[in-house]
């Protein structure tokens, strides 16, 4: 088993521009430290129609209402900053918005993983090659590449992104690694509730038992922390 940079085709070059946008980094930095409720806010705003900040503040009284953390507190400041960054994404056209959302999930995943394995073990947009096996078309969004602890991450904005192709690619990689006597942990990171992911998975026949699912409520496990118990 060996890792290789994905080919720099036209799609990759365009997407690299999105991945390198300061708004992606800003949103990812905020989301990495966000509470569950703040992550739901970001998901809603980036999925939403209105770009009126005051309407979103009304929708989230536990973040912005009279019983929310007071103005000037770190929590309140993060809620405001996340709202602003999320509106920055929502204000883009539909296609660009979709690309930003995907890039943000990848960037959050990278930041949280870095807290557990260190940034030097992390790579982006990598293929995994096995002897005698054709390379997969789609590179992995994030990989952990350290001796004896290889991990491959596929990141999705929503549960609807879970497909048979995705599940097969992840499980195939795990199986091919095992055939070579190596260990590879495939992980599907979905910026959506596990309940929705399970609904999506319920009717899939593709193998999934060897693939770990990380959903919105368990994102912090990427960093080696326990999931938050409450919103």
């Amino acid at each position: 088993m060996r890792f290789q940079d994905a080919a720099k085709d036209a799609r990759a070059v365009v997407y690299a521009g999105i991945q390198g946008d300061p708004l992606v980094a800003r949103a990812a930095d905020l989301l990495a430290d966000a509470t569950a409720g703040q992550r739901v806010l970001a998901r809603a705003v980036m999925n939403g129609e209105t770009i009126d900040a005051e309407i979103w503040r009304k929708m989230f009284p536990t973040l912005f209402g009279t019983s929310a953390p007071p103005s000037g507190s770190a929590e309140r400041d993060r809620s405001e900053a996340l709202l602003e960054a999320s509106l920055g994404v929502a204000g883009r056209g539909e296609l660009v918005r979709s690309q930003f959302r995907g890039a943000i999930v990848e960037a959050v995943t990278e930041r949280l993983l870095a807290r557990r394995v260190g940034p030097q073990a992390l790579r982006r947009e990598r293929r995994i090659l096995f002897d005698g096996v054709p390379a997969e078309i789609h590179p992995y969004d994030v990989t952990v590449e350290s001796d004896g602890a290889a991990e491959a991450y596929d990141c999705k904005w929503g549960a609807r992104g879970i497909s048979a192709d995705v599940l097969h690619q992840l499980d195939d990689a795990r199986a091919h690694a095992a055939e070579e006597g190596a260990r590879l942990l495939p992980v599907l990171v979905v910026f959506d509730a596990r309940r929705s992911c399970e609904v999506r998975l319920a009717r899939q026949t593709a193998p999934r038992t060897g693939t770990r699912l990380v959903s919105l409520e368990t994102l912090d496990r990427l960093a080696g922390r326990r999931a938050e118990a409450t919103a």
């Binding site: 739901v40 999925n47 609807r160 509730a193 959903s215 409520e217 919103a231």
Partner: peptide, 29 residues
């Protein structure tokens, strides 16, 4: 109710319950 695009409606089928639960002060899942 502002959503007119069916694909975004599917996204909101998952999002709206989560925002509702956050507003209720409950676990959002």
């Amino acid at each position: 109710d502002r959503i007119a695009d069916p694909h975004r409606a599917i996204d909101w089928l998952s999002t709206l319950p989560q925002t509702t639960l956050v507003a209720l002060g409950e676990v959002a899942w």
